[in-house]
Simulated assay, not measured.
Amino acid sequence: MAVEFSVDEARERLTELIERAEAGEHVVITRSGAAAVSLEPSRVPAQRREEFAAGVVAASWVAPEAGGSFDVGTDY
């Protein structure tokens, strides 16, 4: 059996409704008392977050030698 929520209720509880649909519950959002949309889990697997970090590039800065000067405007 489906659980029904009005558009206003769904707006306030969207995260909860998404979690319930992901868990397999049939969630229906109604407009003016009639079913408007149904939530269901995506069939496309979510990307893993670890893959995103693989493209991060590290940068570093080396201080000038002792007695040397550093001009922020040109030495970068």
Rank of each mutant, 00 (worst) to 15 (best):
M1I: 06
M1T: 11
M1L: 04
A2F: 05
V3G: 04
V3I: 11
V7I: 13
D8W: 00
E9R: 11
E9K: 08
R11E: 15
R11G: 03
R11W: 04
R13V: 03
L14H: 12
T15R: 15
T15M: 06
E16C: 01
E16L: 10
L17I: 06
L17N: 07
I18H: 05
I18K: 08
R20D: 08
A21K: 07
A21H: 05
E22Q: 11
E22P: 00
E22H: 10
A23D: 10
G24P: 00
H26K: 06
V27Q: 06
V27A: 02
I29D: 08
T30D: 12
R31P: 00
S32D: 15
S32Y: 05
A34S: 12
A34I: 06
A35I: 01
A36H: 10
S38E: 15
S38P: 00
E40C: 02
P41A: 12
S42P: 02
R43I: 08
R43A: 08
P45I: 01
A46T: 09
Q47R: 15
F52M: 06
A54S: 05
G55N: 09
V56W: 07
V57I: 14
V57Y: 06
V57T: 14
V57G: 01
A59P: 00
S60L: 06
S60C: 07
W61Y: 10
W61M: 12
V62W: 02
P64N: 01
E65G: 14
E65I: 00
E65D: 14
A66R: 15
G67R: 06
G68E: 11
F70C: 04
D71P: 03
D71N: 14
G73D: 10
G73M: 15
G73V: 10
G73Y: 13
T74V: 13
T74A: 11
T74P: 02
Y76L: 07
Y76F: 06
